[in-house]
Design a protein around this nucleic acid. Sequence first.
DNA 1: ACGGAGATGGACT
DNA 2: GTCCATCTCCGTT
Length: 198
Amino acid sequence: MTRLSLERALASAITAAPALLGCVLARRTKGGLRIARIVETEAYPPDDPACHAFRGPTRRNGAMFGQRGSAYVYRIHRSFCFNVVAGRVGSGEAVLVRAVEPVDGLALMEQARERSSVGRRAPRGYDLTNGPGKLCQALDIDLSLNGIDLLRSGADSPLELLPGSRVETIATTSRIGISVAKAAKLRFVIRRSPWTSR
DNA sequence: ACGGAGATGGACT
DNA sequence: GTCCATCTCCGTT
């Protein structure tokens, strides 16, 4: 996949969600570099009652109405969830990244997960990044990254989205954790990847 | 000013 | 399967 084809896929949440499988997230902090490959996504298109933007912009979902390729981060209970904004400015659509496969910086991810798990069993193996809240812990993604441009490259880019290599078979299922529009098959996973959630 | 809900995760039965 | 921690935001008073 080229950078151009990635940007083209971001024209809508529906096209972006499968296209983001296999793409790579590069997280840069003072501690060092963490690299992860996206293995599970969910599309939240406009006019979808399960989409946070469905009832128009608010302070929480404001970043969803920004430029395609920017980040939308929000808090749910104790956790954060990370989305890639798609569509046109103002359309209000995004792709939730639900699971990633660690590629590099594994020790940093383990430390970050352990830090968030004080008093509990330290997460190991697939448990490290196989859920939307878990990957945000492992990559230290929080509200400070809400709205940033993920397509900007450079040593000072805190979180960057990079095109991936072509992916194995993609499976499509219902989305997880929502209370409305449950039937839509808008969850995309790399088939047989052990790093997906559930 | 206040009550309720949530695209979750972890512990427990 | 059930329960609930913990916080931001929203809609309503």
